[in-house]
Design a protein around this nucleic acid. Structure first.
Lengths: 134, 134
DNA sequence: ATTACATGTTAGGAAAACTGACATGAGTAA
DNA sequence: TTACTCATGTCAGTTTTCCTAACATGTAAT
């Protein structure tokens, strides 16, 4: 994928399109849960002028990942760690403007394995929003 | 594209995700305009239990096409005709389970040319929602 | 001049979402 | 056991968004 098309599709996926009701249906989470995850800064939905949350497709993806991890016994602190690591690794990627190195990948996987073991589940598999858009 | 993946992407694009406020922003149409086009059966948004309209990406595409045509001088009756023709031609395609024939294509283009000439504009070019999702 | 069309505007009401507070059940630590 | 924490439920009181219906208006066609 060209960096140009990657950038523009990222733009689209981060457009705040969906109200919380739609997100509830897509994720099968309650409004309370979604707001709680925002409170813990796992997502940062936009706000309308009138203060209503508007979510992007990326936000929905993130929520599905959160849901998955919670169901697998990972607590909020663990989820935060995983997301922090992801952000760091993607920052590294952006800095170098190239794919993540094998050693970085191994480091990340090691950390994920540790978390997974702690919650007595074999692996972390996250949600996939791709089925909702072309 | 396989007929399988075509069918499932159609499913996604027809999911009712967006409230009218979002659609207003995406299309730069007023709520009045959007409701008026629905009144004329150019779109059929879903309704929530509470009677709120919920629009799909297909609906947004259609609205952009409507906007384009109106700006090019086509009136509602003309737009209806164009959409009827499109529906018929896609039904024919589905029936035969193959691409539209050259003679059918020429017939459609002839009709479109007639409409375009009547509104003193050279051609019909419609909106493209693809920039809003991957 | 009248009419039709596409859209603006307003009013009153209902649905959906907001914040904040308190409640609760399961798990953990003391 | 008792107490605490965590993730979530629930409720109350507001505010925002959306709804329908009606009437108003500018432009183009007759």
């Amino acid at each position: 994928m060209s960096s140009e098309s990657k950038r523009s599709s990222e733009l689209r996926r981060s457009m705040p399109l969906l109200p919380i009701g739609t997100v509830m249906q897509l994720t099968e989470l309650t409004a309370r849960q979604i707001r709680y995850y925002e409170e813990h800064e796992l997502i940062q939905p936009h706000r309308t002028e009138g203060n209503r949350r508007m979510f992007s497709l990326n936000d929905v993806d993130t929520l599905l990942e959160i849901k998955d991890m919670l169901e697998q016994g990972v607590n909020m602190a663990g989820i935060k760690k995983v997301f922090d690591m992801k952000k760091n690794s993607s920052m590294l990627k952006a800095q170098a403007n190239e794919e993540i190195s094998n050693s970085e990948l191994r480091q990340i996987l090691r950390e994920e394995m540790k978390l997974a073991q702690r919650s007595q589940k074999p692996s972390l598999r996250h949600g996939d929003m791709s089925r909702f858009y072309q």
